[in-house]
Amino acid sequence: MKKTLQFFLALALFLGALALPALAADGRLVIDDAELLTSDACARLEESAQAVSAEYRCDVAILTVQSLDGWDVESYAEQAYDQKGFGWGDAKDGVLLLVSMEARDYYILTYGYGNTAFTDYGKELLEDTFLPALSDGDYERSFAHFIENSGVYLDQARGGSPVDRPQPVPQKAPLLTKVLLVLLCSLGPALIFCWNQLSKMKSAKPARSAGNYIPADGVRVIRKEDVFLYRTVVRHKIPQASNNTPRSGGIGGGGGTTVRSSGFSGRGGKF
């Protein structure tokens, strides 16, 4: 009996080890499976991640792994986000930085309100804040920058203007356009008036038709036939405004967030 119990326990541990990601995170936001951080550094980062997440009610999480186990980084990040239980509240709002040491991949994944706060352009800028340290192997500094700047992004989003591509400034009409507009507004009516008055100066015009000499019942249409001949078809491609659909949190002008059908959005690369 004891042996049977030991067997099932061992099997459960084995299957659990195979599962991806390995274990539920127990509310932790900084999971260093790749063991890049000291326990103290991990604790410090955990503390600041928890603080930022609580303040903005949006999880800011970090996961380091040695390998992606054959998955692509995007799918792994999505699976890990679900499996580790990242995301604040029922809406699972959050942002996750995944770092895999095997092929030196990193990936920023957002979900829910994270999609609003971290736009495509925002993610691009966010990369610049932690990537240099990550490339240098200074992981604690890199992750600290990630958490700190995520807080800044969330703060801006709470203020109603997420970090996004700058809105194109409405350009002032060039001087030539203004001049043309003024000319059109002034010369147009003047031309119409003069043309109308000039046409009154010439009243001797030859007659083109003889409609005045057709008596009241003078027109009799006896034969009337309408025959369809052929049709021609012309097709024009309608230019698309943008390929990014759907969007959330965008403020226009080529910004916004490209959200996948899974509800995630992300951006990654090599460090």
Binding site: A210, Y213, I214, P215, G218, V219, R220, V221, I222, R223, K224, E225, D226, V227, F228, L229, Y230, R231, T232, V233, V234, R235, H236, K237, I238, Q240
Partner: peptide
Amino acid sequence: RDEQITVTEHFRLTRGGQVAFQKI
């Protein structure tokens, strides 16, 4: 979808009859 389709149908119309003119 993303296409503007313009169909032009061509017809041949014939009209026959009389028109009276008085003292042109």
